[in-house]
Nucleic acid binder design. Structure first.
Length: 277
DNA sequence: TACCAGGTCTGAC
DNA sequence: GTCAGACATGGT
């Protein structure tokens, strides 16, 4: 086993996992077991530090996964200096949130499942797919389900996904799995954010919001702003906005926050969603 | 029961 | 280009 220990001031494991960017994790001892593709780690906060325990050889993967080279103090400082009250409050509360570098295929499938769905149900569906089709990998002497490859998912038929509880998204997931398994994602990492989102939107079932989530959570594009129901609500209630089209609301915030739009969105998503009315 | 969820697609205008 | 309605499912 390897152990990564960093300051916990700008790395709160629970907030990072609970802000809706990742679905396959579970409470464990002092923190959480986190599953990504065919790897797992155990992450927790203790004595002012954040600790990530992983299999020997996986430290580099999880170092990148949790974005441990980035300076999140600078993002919080930028939020504080934005002059936008709700963002300042959100960053103060959620300063320990980090944007993960997630597996691209898993993120594409996960956020197709996420559309018009609730987070607990998304988690249940993704866990079901992993247990059914994903094989197993070892961590800490135990075996855990891996996320299935696109090839594996593409070999199933639509009725399998219906039975797994995906509802009308069955054909979207199957179609995306087929596209990914035939190499659709090759070269995506080198594209501009605009072109990347455009390619993602070519997948059936991927629109502007899901494309923004994939660009942010799997390709680390901080210049995109996913405008989901919470951000539309925030736009109306806290910004007095009158625009109704979520795509235009996303463009508004992307223009307002520029290169920090994605991380600011996560601060506000976490804040708005957890705020007591 | 009716409404809603980290939305998208389709067809009508 | 804009808009309404449909779309599976399960929790409240």
């Amino acid at each position: 086993m390897e152990k990564i220990i960093v300051s916990g001031e700008y790395f709160n494991v629970a907030d990072t996992l609970n802000c809706g960017q990742v679905f396959r994790y579970e409470p464990h001892k002092k923190g959480f077991l986190v599953h990504s593709g065919e790897k797992s780690c155990y992450a927790y906060n203790e004595n002012g530090c954040a600790v990530v325990e992983c299999e020997t050889g996986d430290a580099e993967y999880f170092h990148r996964y949790f974005d441990l080279d980035a300076d999140y103090a600078a993002y919080v400082k930028a939020a504080e200096g934005s002059g936008v009250k709700i963002l300042q409050n959100a960053a103060a509360v959620g300063k320990g949130i980090r944007i993960l570098n997630q597996n691209a295929e898993e993120t594409v499938i996960s956020f197709i499942v996420s559309q018009n769905n609730r987070i607990p149900r998304i988690r249940a569906i993704l866990n079901r797919l992993s247990e059914d089709c994903g094989g197993k990998h070892a961590f800490g002497g135990e075996r855990y389900p891996s996320f299935p490859s696109a090839e594996t998912l593409a070999a199933r038929d639509k009725s399998y996904f219906s039975a797994a509880g995906l509802g009308y998204r069955d054909e979207y997931v199957l179609s995306a799995a087929k596209a990914l398994s035939s190499g659709a994602a090759a070269g995506w990492a080198k594209l501009s954010s605009v072109d990347l989102k455009s390619c993602l939107c070519n997948l059936k079932g991927v629109g502007d919001k899901v494309a923004a989530c994939i660009a942010l959570f799997a390709f680390h594009r901080f210049d995109v702003f996913p405008a989901d129901t919470w951000m539309v609500k925030l736009y109306k209630e806290d910004f007095g906005g009158t625009e109704k089209d979520a795509k235009k609301i996303a463009a508004y915030f992307a223009g307002l926050f520029g290169k920090n739009a994605g991380i600011f969105q996560q601060y506000m998503f976490h804040y708005k969603r957890n705020k007591k009315e």
